[in-house]
């Protein structure tokens, strides 16, 4: 299931040249039947300076990847429950094994929207999503606060940084029992929280959470849709100029490179 390996064409985001020192970061992007946002996620990886590796749900091996993104969409048409069937894909078993922190370094895994739902169904993240409290599909730019900057996917944000990224879902109401919510709060595992309006009735305004080790993160909004000037949310600099989501992808690449700095500007660009 090869995808077109297009490179960034448009936008002046100061993206890495494609020949940076971090080119070695290989980030797998999983495609299930019904996945929608795999190409956007792969594009975000490339704009951030990494190499996107297409992964097919039926594959039984992860191959040579340093991190994995489970992107958004409606895998298996949301049959049974959102993410419930995808959880049993052969590749999900390999991802769960590699992401287990007790088994080694713990592969960084990011679930976006339907990918978040899949990671909860796979028990890689706590809680679950039910239908939005207002029952409607909501598509809007949403402000989030990044409350934990120690995960592989948020290391380059500043503490409590507000970011604006698109949100688009119908089953986005995060729920968990009281004990789980208390534990998530106490351990600082609410990675992203809705600011201003709660768009779907999520408990504690939770937009995204991490596992205890911080290598697995899931969120309902879409950072991969806010990585390229001209195609993101409106921001102070102009219409559709928002690229707040890009930091999610540069964070994991820098975490993999063992660096706390951004892409190396001296990284051998021609």
């Amino acid at each position: 299931m090869a995808q077109a390996s297009e490179t960034p064409l448009i936008g002046e985001t100061g993206s890495a040249s494609g020949e940076s020192a971090l080119d070695g970061a290989r980030i797998g992007v999983v495609t299930f039947p019904g996945t929608l946002d795999d190409r956007d996620a792969a594009r975000a990886v490339r704009i951030a300076g990494g190499t996107a590796v297409p992964l097919w749900h039926a594959d039984d091996a992860l191959g040579d990847v340093d991190a994995v993104i489970v992107p958004g969409g409606f895998s298996y048409g949301d049959y049974l429950r959102a993410g419930a069937i995808s959880r049993f894909a052969p590749l999900m078993r390999r991802i769960a094994e590699s992401a287990d922190p007790s088994a080694g370094a713990g592969l960084p895994v990011l679930g976006i929207c339907n990918g978040f739902q899949i990671l909860t169904e796979a028990h890689l993240l706590p809680g679950s999503m039910i239908k939005n409290d207002h029952l409607r599909f909501r598509c809007a730019d949403q402000v989030l606060r990044v409350e934990n900057t120690s995960t592989a996917w948020t290391a380059q944000f500043t503490d409590d940084e507000p970011i604006t990224v698109p949100l688009k879902n119908q089953d986005g109401q995060y729920v968990a029992d009281a004990a789980t919510l208390e534990q998530l709060e106490a351990e600082g595992r609410v990675t992203f929280r809705y600011v201003g309006t709660n768009p779907n009735g999520s408990r504690h305004d939770i937009a995204g959470v991490s596992n205890a080790a911080g290598n697995v993160v899931g969120l309902m909004p879409h950072p991969e849709h806010a990585v390229e000037a001209g195609f993101g949310p409106d921001d102070a600099t102009g219409m559709r100029s928002g690229t707040d989501g890009l930091t999610v992808f540069t964070s994991v690449i820098s975490s993999l490179a063992g660096s706390t700095a951004g892409p190396d500007p001296a990284g051998g660009a021609a």
Partner: peptide, 8 residues
Amino acid sequence: EMLSNPVI
């Protein structure tokens, strides 16, 4: 384990 999600 499959037909229901015990969280919800």
